[in-house]
Amino acid sequence: MVLSQKLHEAFKGTVERITGHRTVSAFKEKGVLSVSEFVTAGDNLVSKCPTWSWESGEPSKRKPYLPSEKQYLITRNVPCLRRAAYLEEEYEAAGMEILLDNEDNDGWLATHGKPKDTSGEVENLPSIESLEISKNRDVKSVPSHVGVEDEDDIPDMADFEEADNIEIDPGTYLIAHEPDDDNILRTRTYDVSITYDKYYQTPRVWLTGYDESRMLLQAELVLEDVSQDHARKTVTIEDHPHLSGKHASVHPCRHGAVMKKIIDVLMSRGVEPEVDKYLFLFLKFVASVIPTIEYDYTMDFDLGSSSS
C-alpha cells in the first residue's frame, strides 16, 4: 500500500515534470480545471468568502506554472466542534443514513465506492477502523498533539512550573475556567488549504489539524474528522506540495469525475455552470468528506452588518 503509493507519487511527479499544463478548458466535458481557470476560480472564492486567501508558501516549493503570490488557497483556524467518526455512529445508532441521500447528492457520493443501499444494512456496520478511532474520544487523558510520543525525552512540565518572577494580574486577565465537560477537548481547529494538482488537473484539499490547545494534531487523529467512508481510503497522509510536514489530503483521483457529475446535474436542470464557481461546487462536495469542519463556501457572504 505504502510502496504502491510511493511508486505512484514518483510516476505522477515524472509525468507532471514532462507534460505541459492544461491550457484548453475541459471544465464542462471532464470536470477538470486548467491552471488559469484554477486561478480565476480561486480569485472568486477569495472575493466571495474572504476567510480564504491566496498564499505563496515555501519559496523552494513554488510551482512555476502558478503566479508566485497565488500558489494555493488557505483558510485558517476553522472550527471543528465534533468528530465526524462520532457523528456517524450517532446517526447509525439512530438508524439514519449518514450519507446525504437526496437526489442532488446522489451523484456526488456514488463515485466514492458503493452508493448507499438502504436495504444493505450489513454495510452500515462500523468497520474495525472506525471503532478503533472512536475509542480515542473516550480516553480523555490521551494527549492528542504531536510531541507526546517521545515521553522518555520530554521532561515533566511540572518540573518547570515557573514559580519565578512572572507577574500576573488576575483582575484583568480572563482566565478560562476549566471545562466541566468534554466540549473543550473537542473543539479542534483546522487549516484547510486547496492546491492545484497538475496531474489530475483538479483542486486538491489538505487538512492541518490542531487540538484544543492549538498544538499540531497527529495526522492519524485527523482521520476522526473525516467521514468514515473516506478515512484511509480517499483521505491519505502525504507531504503538502507547498508547506512543511505531513498533512491529510483528499486524494484527487476521482475529483474530475465527481465534478463532471455535479456539472451534468446542473446542466440537466438548465443551469449553465460558470468556471469561476468551480471551487464553490468543489467545496460543497468536499463537505461530504469532512462534514464537521466548518469552513466557508457559501456564496452569500455578509460581513455581518446587522449583528444578531
Binding site: 510531541g147 512540565m157 507577574e167 505531513k246
Partner: peptide
C-alpha cells in the same frame, strides 16, 4: 505601566514543547 502577558498553557504558566521528530 506595569506589564503582563505570558501565554498560559492549559491554564498554567509553563512553556510548551513540540516534537517534530516524525517529520
Amino acid at each position: 505601566p506595569n506589564a503582563v502577558g505570558w501565554e498560559l498553557n492549559k491554564g498554567r504558566r509553563v512553556p510548551r514543547i513540540i516534537s517534530l521528530a516524525k517529520s
